[in-house]
């Protein structure tokens, strides 16, 4: 252990955050204001998620942190180290072995269980913010359930582009009441939000916490004639061959070479260990064998 209080935050701060989490779970999709603290990392690095995780962690937990699906990017590595140091908790990269998963902008491909908790880092919690800059106005709009503006925005997408062009942070309606920003996850992940795990959302700079209990009704906004579609790159993973996972496009060289790989690194690794192999991985290993001969 370290000389930090367990999980860094002081107890009074944790109580304040815990009260906000409970009210968030009782009013799914409603953004509960909380007194966000300065954290030893800049805003935009997941200070909201870190505070929610700190208030939720117990010494018995196993923590996984992902950034855009990956366990090994700077943000994920530094937050994982932060909690190893300040809470002394076990960490993992395996989705199935984690009890708390803090995420930036993805939901793991593997289905989560009832005994798991998913903590989202949220930059702008207010789904109406880019349509209406005033907090007083957006708060009134939520209280009156006045969400026409959001439908106008989606309609304008269709009028301009022929389809709803919003591809991430796609707004959802929770339990038929609050319109909620699912954080900038790709809309591919939206249908997964009706899950067995507890979902907690923390926005540090904007000082908001919101939550979804398990099996909560989460509907992506759409129109009858333009129904919501969870889209992804029309390709299979070049490493593991998965056709059902969300893909990142990676530029390989200056001559237009590119490959598609699973954004969820643990999912991709697991599949490759199970013997699945994608097009480029197969080509690479064939080339390797040729050089060896």
């Amino acid at each position: 252990m370290s000389d930090y209080n367990f999980a860094y935050l002081d107890e009074q701060t944790k109580r304040m955050i815990r009260r906000a989490i409970l009210k968030g779970l009782a009013i799914p999709g409603y953004q509960v204001p909380f007194a966000s603290r300065e954290m030893p990392m800049p805003y935009g690095w997941g200070t909201g998620g870190v505070q929610v995780s700190a208030a939720t962690l117990t010494p018995a937990d196993t923590l996984k942190v992902i950034d855009q699906g990956a366990d090994d990017t700077t943000n994920a590595v530094s937050i994982r180290k932060f909690f190893e140091k300040t809470a002394g908790v076990a960490t993992t990269e395996e989705t199935g072995a984690a009890s708390i998963i803090q995420t930036r902008h993805r939901i793991p491909e593997e289905d989560l269980r009832e005994d798991q908790i998913l903590v989202y880092q949220v930059p702008i919690p207010e789904p109406l913010r880019f349509l209406e800059p005033s907090e007083i106005e957006t708060r009134k709009m939520h209280s009156l359930e006045e969400y026409g503006l959001m439908h106008v925005k989606l309609y304008e997408d269709i009028a301009k582009h022929g389809a709803i062009a919003t591809s991430y942070a796609y707004p959802v309606k929770v339990e038929g009441r609050y319109v909620m920003d699912p954080s900038p996850i790709p809309k591919f992940d939206n249908p997964k939000m009706e899950m067995a795990a507890i979902q907690l959302f923390g926005a540090g700079r904007e000082q908001r916490i919101y939550a979804l209990p398990p099996y909560c009704k989460v509907v992506s906004l759409d129109f009858e004639d333009f129904p919501f579609e969870a889209s992804k790159a029309d390709h299979a993973c070049d490493m593991c061959g998965a056709t059902d996972s969300y893909l990142d496009e990676v530029i390989m060289d200056d001559s237009g070479g590119r490959m598609f790989v699973c954004s969820d690194t643990d999912y991709c690794t697991g599949r490759r260990q199970a013997g699945h192999i994608g097009a480029q991985a197969a080509a690479a290993s064939a080339a390797l064998e040729e050089t060896a001969v």
Binding site: E11, R18, I21, L22
Partner: peptide, 19 residues
Amino acid sequence: NAPVDAAYAFRAAMNAMAC
């Protein structure tokens, strides 16, 4: 042990409220 006892207690309370 306040930080640890409270952490376990909150997890139980949160699970109860969530489910």
